[in-house]
Design a binder for these strands. Structure first.
Lengths: 220, 220
DNA sequence: ATTACTAGTAGACGAGTAA
DNA sequence: TTTACTCGTCTACTAGTAA
């Protein structure tokens, strides 16, 4: 419900995403321009939806936004970002080369995937991916990218197996055009980035494990 | 009203900020998970609030978000940005040195202003500002900065005159800590940036008019 | 197909009250 | 002071209908 989301946003503005914040229904009502009763009902509603956790004490209550609540807010933020934010995003992700599980090589060899990458990225993907572990300071930048418009890569069925969907974001390493690929809807480690490119990046850039790489995303 | 804002956002997502978009109440209702009747009433409500302009035709209507509507959405976007956006904003503004009106030098010599800059930026401002005209490609980045939390610089009265308020955003040129200063509430040219610093930037960096300067804003 | 009205209903609101 | 209940009102919804 829209009103609940507004309320959740106000709590987040008070710092509710970083830890419990203390306030009364009256205070919240003032921020929302409603009565304390309505503010109180909103908090109960948010708790029922598991968007916040509450601990009612004397003179007010401690409220913290849950992970589910934060996800909800980030979804909303991403929508606004699609309206305004796409101009002027500029990101440098720093990380070091790690050895992946070799799945990338397999998936990139499958025609249905190859064709989709070819069509949307403008190049045929090299059969293999480069895996990076991001520098911790790059993780916020990585999160920010989720608000951009990713290219959807659709799954398919073949030989009695289903191959999952994924999403892809165009980027660069120096002058080489690449794409960040994130598989499926499963939770993916936030510090890992998997890259497709028209060439074998390890060979082209003479990379070995632990070498530092900078990935550039410009979106303007 | 929260519901109206949600509706406005959906219209913006369809491209309503860039020009009129054509759709029916049913389509809109589907996006909002409401009946066509409610969607229709929402549109009437938005029109009454002058947040959109409408032109009803056969089989649907053309809707465009007005400037007032876009301002409303940007306000909301800025609030979400204050929750999430402050992590991982990284901006490089490129521009060339121009000669200002010399007002900066005067204002920076006034004690009430000087003290506020000193307190919030951590340095005493050099009496004088450096004016840059931004490269057009930097203007989107400049706009993005408006969603961050600026330091408010308060106005004051002295000698029968009022001195206006301003806002300031910490930044860097290389290793020199600076601040972007934007005066008052008046509309300021979007391609001009005025900088305060602890030193005279022209002298310190041997700058003359038309020299290229890169201003860095990191906010994490 | 639309938009926009009317009618009936369901749900949300604020006031009052108890703990 | 708080929170959270009940109660009466009123707004906002969906369904149906006309243009």
């Amino acid at each position: 419900m829209a009103e609940d989301l507004q309320c959740l946003k106000v709590i987040a503005l008070m710092g509710g995403c970083r830890g419990p914040v203390f306030f009364s229904s009256q205070t919240l009502g003032a921020s929302l321009s409603t009565s304390p009763q309505t503010a109180s009902r909103r908090l109960q509603s948010l708790e029922r939806q598991m968007l916040v956790t509450r601990s009612v004490g004397p003179g007010g209550q401690y409220i913290a936004v849950t992970q589910k609540g934060e996800d909800e807010l980030r979804r909303e933020y991403a929508e606004y970002s699609r309206v305004f934010g796409r101009e002027g995003v500029q990101c440098l992700l720093n990380g070091h080369v790690i050895t992946g599980l070799g799945e990338g090589r397999y998936y990139m060899s499958l025609e249905p995937y190859r064709l989709q990458f070819q069509r949307h990225l403008g190049f045929a993907p090299y059969p293999g991916t480069l895996n990076l572990r991001l520098n911790p300071s790059s993780i916020p930048h990585r999160k920010k990218l989720d608000t951009l418009e990713w290219i959807p890569i659709h799954g398919f069925r073949a030989e009695d197996r289903t191959f999952g969907e994924a999403r892809c974001l165009p980027c660069r390493i120096g002058d080489i055009r690449c794409g960040i690929v994130v598989p499926g809807r499963t939770h993916y480690p936030e510090d890992i980035v998997e890259l497709v490119a028209p060439v074998g990046l390890r060979a082209a850039l003479s990379l070995k494990d632990n070498d530092i790489v900078t990935v550039e995303v410009d979106y303007d």
